[in-house]
Design a protein around this nucleic acid. Sequence first.
DNA 1: GATTGTGGTAACCTTAAAGTAACGATTATG
DNA 2: CATAATCGTTACTTTAAGGTTACCACAATC
Lengths: 111, 111
Amino acid sequence: MNTDVFLCSNCPMTRTMATLGSKWKPIIIYTLGKKSVRFGMIHAKMGLISRKVLTQQLVELEEDGIVARQAFKELPPRVEYSLTPKGLELLPILNMMTKWNLKHNPTVEEG
Amino acid sequence: MNTDVFLCSNCPMTRTMATLGSKWKPIIIYTLGKKSVRFGMIHAKMGLISRKVLTQQLVELEEDGIVARQAFKELPPRVEYSLTPKGLELLPILNMMTKWNLKHNPTVEEG
DNA sequence: GATTGTGGTAACCTTAAAGTAACGATTATG
DNA sequence: CATAATCGTTACTTTAAGGTTACCACAATC
């Protein structure tokens, strides 16, 4: 019988979850999709996220090479975010998660 | 231009992340794989998780229909956990996440 | 009658993530 | 010189997740 202990710190799945597994990151990635989107527009689309947290998450996503940030030297400032190739490759995974959920969870109507 | 606000509460991806996106759940699912595994064995394999948290996560996974719990009427007690069909369908998704990470993140050797 | 093995539970504490509210920089506009 | 627009930052508070320790039930064994 296999009794090897699973080593979290070195597990690619755990690292992926550590990268994506926050409340907002998957939604940010989905919101960006294949487009380049301004900070204010991301914020508006996501509705309830605070600007502080959105900034934080975007910085982390950029550090992880998932999102690219492009700042234009204009005033008032304009900053656009888009997915890198690495980030784009997450879209099919997020899509599978969506399909899995739709298949197994009957849609809940609230309110 | 599309300015629709994204509704998190009704988003299948967000619901999926809410279901899976904890520190331990993906590892539990991966540890179970296609087998039926005793509580103590899961705990031993996962190394650092506390029994309290493991119990908690297993209860939630069972409530979400991802894991099945089978208690044998023996003493000392024996309880085995396994993935339901719904849970088994997560394995390829977790696998894609693993592949994505291995492709993009050079393995880090620590210690 | 003390010890072992198994799958838990209960009470409490710590830490990490997220939320809130106010402010900063810069230029154009009125 | 006050206001608006845009993308932030800073300091502080709240909330949720996870961790720690000790305990319980029950039968078999010594």
